[in-house]
Each structure stands twice: as C-alpha cells, then as structure tokens.
Design a protein around this nucleic acid. Structure first.
Lengths: 260, 260
DNA sequence: TCGCTTGCCGATACAACGTATCACAAATCG
DNA sequence: CGATTTGTGATACGTTGTATCGGCAAGCGA
C-alpha cells in the first residue's frame, strides 16, 4: 500500500485547513498524519464546482462568479475548472439547470388549476431563493434536463384538459412568462443593491425619496407606490386572472380560484 | 477670429475620416483646410454616447458594450466618456431609459382594454427591436424619466376604471410582468446565438435536433414544439386571458377582446 | 511487470476589460 | 486678464477569461 492515507471518510476537511499548499516542490516532512492528506485524483467534479458556484452566486450575486473565485472557493487553481467545462458560460448554464431541478415538484395536485398554481408558486419561491436565476435565464435559454423536466411537469398538469398542441403551448408559455416576468421585475433591484452594498431599507429609502420628489414635482403624481415590493397576494391574484381568463375562454369549469 | 474653422455644418465628417490623430504632438502642416478640423471642445455629449452605445448593443449585443469600444466608435479615448458618467453601469441605465422612451405611445385608445393591449404590443415591439433591453431591465430596475412616463401612461389607460390603488397596481404590474416575461423567454436565445455567431436557422436546427433526440429517447415526448418561437398570436391570446380574467373578477364589461 | 495513454492539475502568459490618476489645454467666468 | 472649470489624452493598475505547456497519477494493454 502506498504511504498515502486512503480514507476518504476522514477526508472531510474542516474547510479552513491551514494553507494546504500541496504541489510540486513541497518538501515532505513530519508524519503522514500531520501532513495534509494527499489529494486523491478526482478532487474536483462538475457537481462540486457547480454547487460552489451556486453558493457564491446566492451570497454575492452573479457578478461574483469568476473562474478564479470559484476555484479559490474550492482550493483549486483556476485552470483546473476547465477540465470539466469549456467556458465560463457553460458553468452558468449548468448552475441554472441545477436550480431548475428545485423547481419540479414531488407530486402534482390532480386539479389542473391547483397544479399550475403550485408549479408557479414553486417557481417563484425558487427564484427568490436564488435571486440571480431569472436574469440568467433571460440571457440564455434553459435547455438542460431539469428545464425539460419542468416543461414535462407543466404539460402533465394540463394533460387532463385535452387541449390541442398549440393551445397547450400557449397556456404554458403564458404561465411561465408571467411567473418569470413577475420575479424578474421584483428582483431587478437586487443585483444593484448587492453591487453597492446597500441594505434593503437603504435601497427602499433612496428610491422612495426619489419617487416622492418626482411626485411632488407633479411629474408623476401616483408613482410613489411603485417603490413598494410586489406582494405574494398580487402574484396570486394576477395569476388567477390569467388562468380564469383561459378557463373562461375554453368553457372549462374548475373549483374555486386559489386564494393567496 | 481664430484660424480654427468654425463651421459646424461642414463638420459632418464622413465617419471614416483618415486617422484624424489630433492632439499634443501633431505637427501643424499644410493648409487649414487640408487639415482635419480642430475639435471644438464638447465633441462628445451624453446623448451621442448613449446613442452610439445603443447602436452597438443592437448590432452586437449587450456584451459588446465596453467603454473602450463605445469610445472607439466615437473616435474618442476611453476615459473621455467618464466626463459624462460615473461608471459603465450608468451608461446601461441611460441606454435602457432612452429605449423606454420608445415605449410610450403618442396617443392612447379610449377603451382601457384596447389601451392596455396597445401599450403591451408597443412594449413587445420595442423589446424585439432592441433584444438586449429586457435582460438589462431584469438586472437593474428602470427608474428613469421614461420609465416613469411609461408607468404614468399605463395608469392613465386604466384611470377610467376607478380602481383602488392596490388593484390598479396589481393589474399594471401583471401586464408588465407578462409582457416582459414573454419577451424575455422569447429572446433568451438571442444573445447566445449572437455570442457564437450562429444564424437563426442554425440555432433552430441545433436546438431542434437536440430536442428531437430527447423526444426519441422517450424522455420528453411532447417537447419538440418548444423549439419553435412563440408567436404574436400566442402573445395576444394570453394577454387576452389575463385581461379578461381581470375584467370578469371586477364585473367590468368591455368590447370584444382584441384579436391577434 | 512495464510502458503508454488519458485525464487532472499547476504555472505562466496574454489580451481585453473597468477605471484611478495626472497633466494639459480650451472654455468659461470673475 | 487671471482663475477656475471642464473635456480630453496618456498611462497605469488590478482583474478577468482562457490558451498553452509541462507534469504527474491512475488505468490499461502487452
């Protein structure tokens, strides 16, 4: 057996290990056990890279995703990441698809209306958990396996309605467009706040003051309200409108609309 | 009078003027008229910068907006632009607001339904003309004067309904969210196509083939349809659902729904 | 067992980026 | 006319994405 300790269970390093500068010219000294564990090949994997990048983006925004910084987070060298991907943009696509996995529901309500509401609510919740998600999707289409799963689940939700292809497609795109658009408008300020390191209330104060000024100047009398964040209630209400409008135009009857 | 020709009407340079390298150490030689015109101070202005940046973004995408490249487009040096703005992000905000100006309509239909449809259609048209717009808005909130004008116009459109504050706000946000979301999903592939220099049909072919593969593999039987671009008809139909649903929930009667 | 291939890692390098800084000249204002 | 402001240009610094190269460990055929 080689002198390299091969106990991966013990390899759970405390994440802040003292400058484990392994590599070419590191002199071998001391006991095997006092030395940092030799890296097994396969230290990195696409999954750990994507996961680290997601954590970074959640904490510091999409702009914080640089190859160098993700690598540093993993105690790796920048170019190592390129063994697993072709370019940085690929990483972002992978991050998006990973998160899209959180969007597909474990089980689906039987009623199509309730099912679409549940999917939309989940989409919105995930979007808020990862505030960079929606902006990222608006820049590159989501085509990965989890995006596919999401689409399939939406189709399953309305399968019972027996719609024709085109109508089904229109309905599903409408729901997704509304949900993503709502989340996008809602979170538009997020990355900006993050960039300038403002707290939520600092941001609300400054935009509120700005809009108040405009109102007082008479240029936009009813505008100040837009400083407020859109509410869950507004989301559910609007989605009800959309779906009720669809239902009416198709003569489908359903239970009560979902109340927010 | 100074020897500098002060005929700004003739200053319409043919845009490709021979390397007009003015500046400190350029030797003065030849006739005044054969020399390039001395730059009047104020060569640049915020407006020309923003306009140049918009043209660049329309042609090559938001990623093509670099201070250096915009400056080059104006035969200026990069740092000159910073006399007019504090940072690059400000330029993008200014670009967005400039385009938002194209979104406010000259006159508004009297009927609230027709008016909201007209606004949404205009929003969508502008979004397609400037494919980078929606992604940009999803990253930073639009707060400029033209964003304000757009919001005011939307409020004017439904003023006749006598809604209370919260309801009006919900309705307008819903329409904007749907419109922006629809455009965003629609244009998501655009910047990616642009990045890789693919034509629209190359892109459609490759994603179509990919989704067909998935379908054949049985993993997503009904998916291929999503390769197709959403249509105007789908947009109008869905918007009708949303607005009809709203109208029904408020007992407002209107004329016929708009047909796409 | 040996040697070859394959795949991951590390170091270095380069062009392009945003932007701080400084110097200078024209424009403007007292 | 002198002082101040303002637009411009040159240069420089730190950071980014990523090409390239060289090395080493693991797996594999002989």
């Amino acid at each position: 057996m080689s002198p390299t300790p091969s106990t991966p269970e013990l390899d759970q390093e405390p994440a802040g290990r003292p400058n484990a500068r392994r590599g070419a010219s590191a002199p071998v000294s001391g006991s095997v056990w006092t030395r940092p564990p030799r890296p097994t090949r396969r230290r990195l994997s696409l999954e750990t890279i994507v996961r680290a990048a997601i954590d970074l983006a959640d904490a510091h925004g999409l702009d914080a995703i640089t190859i160098r910084r993700v690598a540093a987070e993993l105690n790796a060298r920048p170019m190592s990441l390129y063994s697993f991907m072709d370019r940085k943009d690929d990483l972002i696509e992978l991050m998006v698809d990973e998160i899209l996995g959180e969007m597909v529901l474990g089980e689906l309500p039987k009623d199509w209306l309730a099912a679409l509401h549940a999917i939309a609510a989940q989409t919105r919740a995930v979007g808020r958990r990862h505030p960079w998600l929606i902006a990222a999707i608006m820049q590159r289409p989501a085509l990965g396996p989890n995006a596919v799963r999401h689409a399939e689940q939406s189709m399953a939700a309305i399968a019972g309605l027996g719609l024709e292809r085109e109508q089904a497609r229109t309905l599903l795109i409408a729901v997704d467009a509304f949900t993503m658009g709502f989340g996008g408008l809602e979170l538009a300020g997020h990355s900006m706040r993050q960039r300038d390191g403002l707290t939520e209330s600092q941001w609300a104060d400054s935009t509120g003051a700005y809009l108040d000024d405009l109102s007082r100047a008479g240029r936009a009398p009813h505008l100040a309200q837009f400083a407020e964040e859109p509410s869950d209630h507004a989301f559910v209400t609007s989605l009800n409108w959309l779906l009720a409008g669809f239902a009416a135009s198709h003569g489908k009857t359903t239970g009560e609309p979902v109340t927010g």
